[in-house]
Design a protein around this nucleic acid. Structure first.
Length: 540
RNA sequence: GCCCUCAUAGUUCAAUGGAUAGAACACGGGCCUUCUAAGCCUGUAAUCCAGGUUCGAAUCCUGGUGAGGGCACCA
C-alpha cells in the first residue's frame, strides 16, 4: 500500500516541481515519509512532503500542500483515495476508498497463508548464523533470545522470497574444548560447573582415566551438541539447515589457506613469535593475533576462514546474530571482510551483524548475570519446562534486540495466564469458533460481494492491509518486536469488531461480508503468529 | 582510562525527526438472557539532567549522571 502511495506522490512531485534538479528531486523523494496515520482524524496514511518542500524551496508548507494535492488527485487513477486533505503544519492525509479495503479482504482470502509474502528476494540468497553457542553446556536464556530472534527473522526473509540458510557454527575445537575436558576429568583446571558435567562424566566411563583432556573434551562436546543442544533446539522448534563445524575448517586447511591469502595481500606480519593481522588498516583499534607464539591458531583466525567460506558460497546477505558480549568483535570482523575483498559498501550492506542485548535474570529479588563457567544460569530447557513455547517465544520477541531485559523467572511462570500471547491467540480462537458456527448454519462468505460499513469493520480491514508493508520494513531494519505489536493491535481491533458487529443472525448479505472480514483476520493473525513460530489455536 | 549498548507511567516494554508519547501488568470504576468475559468500556500515571541542531526532538549532536557489556599471544 505504501509503495502505491509513494509512487503517486513521486509522480505528483515531479509534475509540481519542475524547476529543481534531478538530484534534489531524488533527495526529496528519499526524505519523504509515507506512514500509517496515528489518529483516525488524520486519515489512513499521511506524508510530510509539504513540510519538506517548504524547507527546500521556500514558500509555505500549506501552499505546497495544495499544489501537490491537486497533482495527486489527477494522478490517482485507481481512486485509492476517497479524500486527500491538507493539514497543519504541513501534512497531507490520505483517506482510503472503501473499495481498496474490500479488495484487500478479497486478496487476503485468495492468497491465504501467502498473504504478505513478496518476491523481492526471489533471486537472492541469505545466510543467518545464530545461536552458535559453545558446545560446553546447555543453552541459556540468552541463547534463547538470539535463537527465537534469528529463527523469526529467517521466517520473515523466507516470506520475502529469499532463499534462507539457517546456520549454527560449532566451536568444536581449541581452548574451551580442552577446558571442557578438564572439567569432565574434574582436575584442578576444571572450569565448567553444572549438573550436566557429572552426567557426561558417567557416560564417558573409563575413557576419563586414559584419554587426554583434549580428546575427552571433543567427545564431551559431541555429546553436548547431540544430546543437549540439538534436542533443546528441537523443543524450541528451530530447524537449522546446517551445523557448521569449526574443526572442518582445520581439516580442509581452510584456516591455513586463509592466513596464506592474507599474507599474500601483505596484511600479515610476525612479531614476538606471533603472527598478526593488520586489522588497523581497516579501522580496527589494534592488530589481532592469528597464530600465537605457541603455534596455536586463534579463534579469530578460524572466524576469518569461516567468513571467507560464507563469502565463497555466494550469499547476497550474511547476517550474524551475536550477544552483546561480542560487540568488540564487530570491528575486527569488518576489517577481515575488507581484507577478503569486500568494499566498504559491501561491509555495510552485505554483512549485517546484529547485536542482541544480554539477559539478566531476577531471582529472590536479586539480579544475576548468567555465566556457564560459574554455573549461575537458567537453561532454556528449564524455562521450557515451566513456560509453554508460545509464551517464551512471544516474551522474547516482544523486546527489541537493543533492549536490556531483565527476566523475572517467577513472574514469567506466574503470569503465564496473563501473557499477551493468549490475548492474541484468543482472538484467533474466537474467529475459529464463529467460522465453525457459521458453517453449521450453512453461512458461507462471498468474497465477491463484500461491503464494509461499520467503523469497527473498516478499522479492522485497514489493519489487515498493513502486513505486507510491515514485513518489508522489518526486512530492512530487523526490528522484530513490530510483529508482536501488530498482532496485539490486530487482536484488539478484532475484539472491538466482535463487540460491535454480530455476524450470525444478521441479514444474509451483511453476515456474509462480516464473515469474510473475520476469516481474513484469522488468516492474517495466523500468518503473523506463525512468522514468530507461534501457534494459532482453533480452540482455547 | 578508551570503546559499544541502554535510560520512557509503580513495573515490563512500544513509538522511520512529525501532529494529542502507545500497550500490557498493577491499582480504581462499569459491562455477560445474544457468535468463547482468556473479552469490552473507563480512571490515575512517564520521555534521567543540562545545553545545542531543527519549522518540529523520546528519537540527532555535545556534556553530565546511572546501568550493562567489551577493551589479552582469552574464548
Amino acid at each position: 500500500m505504501k509503495e502505491k502511495i509513494e509512487k503517486i506522490i513521486a509522480t505528483a512531485l515531479a509534475q509540481t516541481f519542475r524547476t529543481v534538479s534531478p538530484q534534489q528531486l531524488e533527495e526529496l523523494k528519499k526524505k519523504t515519509v509515507v506512514e500509517e496515520s496515528r489518529r483516525v482524524s488524520q486519515g489512513d496514511y499521511s506524508t510530510n512532503l509539504p513540510l519538506l518542500l517548504a524547507q527546500t524551496a521556500g514558500s509555505s508548507p500549506l501552499a505546497w500542500g495544495e499544489k501537490i494535492k491537486a497533482e495527486i488527485e489527477k494522478e490517482d487513477k485507481q481512486t485509492l483515495f476517497e479524500q486527500v486533505v491538507i493539514a497543519h503544519p504541513g501534512f497531507i492525509n490520505f483517506f482510503l476508498s472503501p473499495s481498496v479495503l474490500t479488495t484487500a479482504v478479497k486478496d487476503v482470502l485468495k492468497e491465504k497463508e501467502h498473504y504478505g509474502d513478496s518476491n523481492e528476494g526471489a533471486d537472492k540468497q541469505i545466510q543467518i548464523e545464530f545461536v552458535s553457542a559453545n558446545p560446553t553446556g546447555p543453552l541459556t536464556l540468552g541463547n534463547g533470545r538470539g535463537g527465537f530472534y534469528g529463527d523469526s527473522l529467517a521466517n520473515i526473509f523466507d516470506s520475502g522470497g529469499y532463499a534462507v540458510v539457517r546456520e549454527y557454527y560449532v566451536n568444536d575445537v581449541g581452548e574451551q574444548v580442552r577446558q571442557l575436558g578438564h572439567s569432565l576429568i574434574g582436575d584442578e583446571q576444571a572450569v565448567y560447573k553444572g549438573d550436566y558435567i557429572g552426567t557426561i562424566r558417567e557416560r564417558l566411563g573409563t575413557a576419563i582415566k586414559k584419554d587426554s583432556p583434549e580428546t575427552i573434551g571433543v567427545k564431551g562436546a559431541e555429546i553436548i551438541i547431540e544430546e543437549i543442544i540439538k534436542p533443546t533446539l528441537e523443543r524450541m522448534q528451530i530447524n537449522f539447515n546446517n551445523f557448521f563445524s569449526e574443526k572442518s575448517l582445520y581439516k580442509n586447511q581452510a584456516v591455513d589457506k586463509t592466513i596464506d591469502y592474507l599474507r599474500e595481500q601483505g596484511l600479515v606480519y610476525k612479531q614476538a613469535g606471533a603472527v598478526w593481522f593488520q586489522s588497523t588498516r581497516f579501522g580496527d583499534d589494534k592488530d589481532r593475533v592469528l597464530i600465537r607464539a605457541d603455534k596455536e591458531k586463534t579463534y579469530f583466525a578460524s572466524d576469518i576462514a569461516y567468513l571467507k567460506n560464507k563469502l565463497e558460497r555466494g550469499f547476497d546477505k550474511i547476517i550474524y546474530i551475536w550477544g552483546a558480549d561480542h560487540h568488540g568483535y564487530i570491528k575486527r570482523m569488518q576489517a577481515a571482510a575488507q581484507a577478503l575483498g569486500c568494499s566498504q559498501e559491501e561491509v555495510e550492506n552485505k554483512i549485517k551483524i546484529i547485536i542482541v542485548q544480554l539477559i539478566d535474570f531476577l531471582q529472590d529479588g536479586k539480579k544475576f548475570r548468567m555465566s556457564k563457567r560459574k554455573g549461575t544460569y537458567v537453561t532454556l530447557s528449564e524455562l521450557l519446562d515451566e513456560v509453554p513455547l508460545d509464551v517464551a517465544r512471544f516474551f522474547f520477541l516482544e523486546r527489541g534486540p537493543d533492549s536490556h531485559l531483565v527476566f523475572d523467572i517467577a513472574l514469567a511462570k506466574e503470569k503465564s495466564e496473563k501473557n499477551p500471547v493468549y490475548y492474541v491467540q484468543y482472538a484467533h480462537a474466537r474467529i475459529a469458533g464463529i467460522l465453525e458456527k457459521a458453517q453449521a448454519q450453512k453461512l458461507a462468505c462471498q468474497p465477491e460481494s463484500i461491503t464494509l460499513e461499520h467503523p469497527a469493520a473498516l478499522q479492522l480491514a485497514k489493519l489487515l492491509i498493513q502486513l505486507p508493508d510491515l514485513l518489508k520494513k522489518t526486512r530492512e531494519d530487523y526490528q522484530l518486536q513490530r510483529l508482536t505489536e501488530y498482532s496485539k493491535q490486530l487482536a484488539a481491533q478484532f475484539h472491538r469488531f466482535y463487540r460491535d458487529c454480530r455476524i450470525i443472525g444478521e441479514e444474509k448479505k451483511l453476515a456474509q461480508s462480516r464473515l469474510a472480514l473475520a476469516q481474513a483476520t484469522a488468516v492474517v493473525l495466523k500468518k503473523t503468529l506463525n512468522l514468530m513460530g507461534i501457534e494459532a489455536p482453533e480452540k482455547m
